[in-house]
Simulated scan of single mutants.
Amino acid sequence: MQRRAAAIYVVFFVLVAVGAFSLTTVAQEPSVSVAGQNYSQGDTLSAGGTEWTVNVNDGEGNVSRVNESARFTTSIANNSSLLFANGEYRPAPNGSDSGAGTGTGSPSPSATGTPGGSGTSLATGETASNDSATRFRVVISNATAGNASGGNTSGGNASGNATNVSSFTLRQEFMTSQRLRQDPSVADVALTGENGTQYVRYRNGTTQPLDEYLPTPEVRNVSVGDSFPYENNSSSVASVNTSGATLAWEGNLTRSAELKDGENATIGGTTYVAQFPTNSSVTLSQNVSGYQAEQTKLDEFNNRILGLWGTVIISLFAAVLIVALAYMPVRG
């Protein structure tokens, strides 16, 4: 009797599994496809008043455009250091070489050494790693004072700060310690007198003020509108204020938007949904809501199919378990 009942249950669960499996085979998967424009590699898409180039490769891609007259800006801070070599300026790297002398002066500038400054790059005639560059310090000091305005502040600076700044000065700096080490006639280190004046000691015992020992520094004046080649860019000075100068130039700017199957992409202010019917083409549709509705139907279908497969597996497992229990030995 026990085995007869087990056989009935086994047949029941097998029928349930067969029925669930049959439903998985006859169910038709809903398609997800909305009307849109088809594009291949190199095609052009017009969006937002601009032309975008479509790039498709192996079932993925992007759209891109190049702005050939984009405006770029950068800033150089007051009292910062620049290197000039091969006809262009670039930022001087920070370092710890004690011996940077700063060129100072008026119409006939003289140099005052200031050992202990930062910097590792060398002046003209001083080489490191076979690279020769002239080092300059940015100096902005030719501003005229503005009027105070009741102690109010504007942009973080109190009214009354220097205004009407239209130019800045580049003063040559020298790596004093490097120059002293390369000169066999003087000691390697400059001395500081009681009054703070720095001296150079010659091997014969005589001394000379450091500002007289160093050569006359080069001084360059730069105004708003002047060309200022900076880091491989044909830039010019756009503005100057007491904290630094702003450089501007035009160049190419590439903008792109990634395309992924079934995901939205905003191109030129318009949102598209991307589909890849083949590995070498993409369909872009603005019917985002329609695509999402169809995708929801597909997700529901997949969930039902998973439920049917779960029913098949559980039913077969139950049938096997019942058979095993039915044939277990019984005491007595």
Rank of each mutant, 00 (worst) to 15 (best):
A158S: 04
R181Y: 06
G151C: 07
S166A: 15
T134Q: 11
T127N: 05
S132T: 14
S149N: 14
D183I: 14
D188Y: 10
T169K: 10
R171Y: 06
F174M: 11
A133V: 07
S154A: 07
N147W: 00
S185C: 06
R135L: 07
Q178K: 06
A133D: 05
V165C: 00
V189F: 06
N157G: 11
T144K: 02
G160H: 01
T127P: 01
Q172G: 12
V139A: 10
Q172L: 10
N157L: 09
I140S: 05
S159L: 06
L180A: 13
N157W: 03
Q172I: 03
G156W: 02
T153K: 14
S185A: 10
L170K: 02
N142A: 12
T144Y: 01
S167A: 09
T134H: 06
R137T: 13
V138T: 02
G150K: 05
N142H: 11
Q182M: 07
A143G: 12
A148G: 15
R135F: 02
S132Y: 10
G151A: 06
F136L: 04
E173N: 10
A145I: 11
A143V: 11
R181G: 04
A187H: 12
S177Y: 02
S132M: 13
G151M: 08
V186H: 10
S129D: 14
T192W: 05
A158W: 00
R179E: 09
N152I: 02
T144I: 02
D188M: 15
S141P: 09
L180T: 11
N130G: 15
N157D: 15
D188C: 11
N161E: 09
S166R: 10
V189K: 14
I140C: 11
R181V: 03
G155F: 02
V186M: 13
S167T: 02
V186I: 13
F174V: 10
N152F: 07
Q182I: 03
T163C: 01
A128Y: 07
T192M: 08
F136E: 13
I140N: 05
T134A: 15
N130Y: 13
A133H: 10
R171E: 03
V139P: 04
I140A: 12
A148E: 08
A187Y: 11
A128D: 06
A190T: 04
N164E: 10
G151E: 03
R171H: 06
N142S: 15
F174N: 12
N130M: 15
A187W: 11
L180F: 13
G156P: 13
I140Q: 05
S185L: 06
S141G: 14
R181K: 12
T163H: 00
N147D: 07
G156K: 08
T163P: 00
I140K: 04
S167C: 05
M175E: 08
S159C: 03
V189Q: 15
L170N: 01
A162Y: 07
A133I: 03
S132K: 10
G151I: 15
Q182G: 04
D188I: 13
R135T: 04
T169F: 00
Q182T: 03
N142V: 03
A187L: 14
M175V: 09
R135S: 02
G151T: 10
S166Y: 07
